[in-house]
Write a protein that binds this DNA or RNA. Structure first.
Length: 222
DNA sequence: GGATGATCATGC
DNA sequence: GCATGATCATCC
């Protein structure tokens, strides 16, 4: 992808296409469901748009500074899932600041691609929605920053295990691992090193719903 | 019905 | 294990 316009046009052109059509074009096969293929739709869209970062800790289109995110919507256009942003540092966090954070970097410019997330529709028949570019408004960034700071303060104080997904207005902290037996190092209550579940930052659905709602001029009811 | 905590696949 | 891509499954 040489420029943002080209990428956006390519993403826009995917609107209305079914996963079966897209998979066929990419030489991919469509799984029966997502239970054992949770990231499949994201990978399908990455392939269709030529994202190249792979498993590196980079934006999907580093040269454009753009992060690609699919977001599954229900019949009313509401997000069905929270949106994973990045994993959370749990050690040596005292010097970290929002401006240099991975969360801010990832969310600086997002190419959102709504997808049909309805489980009652066969995966192959679900379709891609209308892509749109988003950059956080000053208000949105302020919310994100406040939540990020609150979480990071607790982590720095050795209180990571007191954090639940209920905390944070728009940005929550939740486990992010293969399973609940996976452990990583963190700071404990007494400043010692403890073993704990890896965590990740996720955008709450209320936050992404507000973006979707505004973008497509949808009503709050229904 | 919706959100939380747990989980799945893959590459290095 | 940690990064990527997320949704599942169970709970309230």
């Amino acid at each position: 992808m040489s420029d943002l316009r080209t990428l956006f046009d390519a993403a826009s052109a995917l609107a209305g296409q079914s996963f079966a059509e897209l998979a066929d074009a990419q030489g991919m096969s469509v799984p029966a469901d997502l239970r054992r293929h949770k990231g499949w739709v994201g990978q399908l869209l990455e392939a269709a748009l030529g994202a190249s970062a792979g498993s590196q800790a980079l934006q999907d289109f580093p040269e454009l500074g753009v992060e690609l995110k699919t977001i599954p919507l229900d019949a009313r256009g509401r997000p069905l899932e929270t949106t994973f942003v990045c994993t959370t540092p749990l050690l040596d966090v005292t010097g970290l600041n929002w401006e240099a954070s991975n969360v801010r970097n990832k969310l600086q410019c997002v190419l959102w691609i709504p997808i049909d997330g309805r489980r009652e529709i066969a995966l192959a028949q679900r379709t891609v929605g209308t892509a749109f570019l988003w950059q956080p408004s000053a208000a949105e960034e302020a919310q994100l920053k406040a939540d990020w700071q609150e979480h990071m303060d607790k982590i720095a104080l050795g209180q990571v295990e007191q954090i639940t997904a209920h905390q944070g207005e728009v940005l929550q902290l939740r486990p992010k691992a293969a399973n609940s037996r996976v452990l990583t190092e963190a700071v404990g209550p007494g400043g010692e090193i403890i073993q704990t579940l890896p965590r990740g930052f996720y955008l709450k659905t209320g936050f992404t719903w507000a973006i979707i709602k505004r973008t497509f001029d949808l009503a709050d009811s229904n």
